[in-house]
Simulated assay, not measured.
Amino acid sequence: MPTDPAASDWRRNEGIVNIQSSNTGNQAVGDDNTLTVQQVPAPPLPEQVTVADLRTALQAVREDLARLRAEDADAVPDEDADEALTSLDRVGEEAEREQPRPRAIRRHLTFVVDALESATALTTASGGLAVAATALVTSLGALQAIVLKLFGG
């Protein structure tokens, strides 16, 4: 079977192709279906990051979550959004301590990522919903990179 999309019979690859995955997320099955997968890398960080950068990243995630929910109130369930916002607050509070606890920061960030998992599937939606979901996933990736740089992994 040709792997070149320009080949005449390239679209005749039927069935589910599963390469080391758990079959979760968006899937396209059947004839003439198309599945688009987008990987959103975190933006590059400067050599030095500060707690001020962390505060900015926390605010960006909050704003992007609000924008996504304004686009579609059901995009992230209320309970998940509340959990994410509470955990974002805890990350910020912990980072402001005289002696921040890296494990606590990473744990709360994990809660944020878990709570916002539903948004990742929306990056392949259409229109404003995809734009808002992609912005949230991107800002969340930047936050994770800053936490990693400040507090290690």
Score class of each variant (00 low, 15 high):
Thr134Leu: 04
Glu47Lys: 12
Val91Gln: 00
Thr34Glu: 05
Thr120Lys: 10
Leu136Asp: 08
Leu122Pro: 05
Leu65Val: 09
Gln20Lys: 15
Leu140Cys: 03
Arg12Gln: 11
Asn18Gly: 02
Asp114Arg: 14
Leu140Thr: 09
Pro5Asn: 10
Gly92Arg: 00
Ala133Trp: 02
Gln38Cys: 07
Asp4Phe: 04
Val113Tyr: 01
Gly92Lys: 00
Asp4Gln: 07
Asn23Asp: 11
Arg101Thr: 12
Ala95Gly: 09
Arg62Asn: 02
Gly127Pro: 03
Val17Tyr: 14
Gln38Thr: 15
Pro44Thr: 14
Pro44Ser: 08
Val29Pro: 00
Gln48Ala: 11
Ala7Gly: 09
Ala104Gly: 06
Leu54Lys: 04
Leu65Glu: 07
Asp72Gly: 01
Arg101Asp: 12
Met1Ile: 09
Thr134Glu: 11
Ala145Ser: 15
Pro77Lys: 10
Ala7Arg: 11
Ala6Phe: 08
Leu129Pro: 05
Glu71Asp: 12
Arg12Cys: 01
Pro100Leu: 08
Asp9Asn: 07
Glu93His: 03
Gln38Pro: 00
Ala28Trp: 00
Ala142Asp: 05
Ala95Asn: 05
Thr86Gly: 12
Asp114Met: 11
Leu143Gln: 14
Gly30Ile: 04
Phe151Gln: 03
Thr86Leu: 08
Thr50Arg: 09
Ala119Lys: 04
Arg11Leu: 06
Leu35Gln: 06
Val91Ile: 12
Gln39Tyr: 14
Val37Met: 13
Gly128Tyr: 14
Ala132Gly: 03
Leu148Gly: 13
Pro102Cys: 13
Arg69Pro: 00
Ala70Met: 07
Ala125Thr: 12
Arg55Gln: 15
Gly141Arg: 10
Ala28Gln: 02
Pro102Phe: 13
Leu85Met: 10
Ala52Trp: 00
Ile16Val: 10
Thr120Gly: 06
Ile146Asn: 08
Ala52Asn: 11
Glu14Pro: 05
Arg107Gly: 07
Arg11Pro: 02
Ser21Tyr: 12
Gly141His: 01
Ile16Asp: 03
Ala125Gly: 09
Phe151Arg: 03
Asp78Lys: 07
Asn26Pro: 01
Ala81Leu: 07
Ala104Lys: 11
Leu136Trp: 02
His108Ala: 11
Ser22Met: 12
Pro100Cys: 12
Thr50Gly: 11
Pro2Val: 02
Val49Ala: 02
Leu45Ala: 12
Asp31Thr: 03
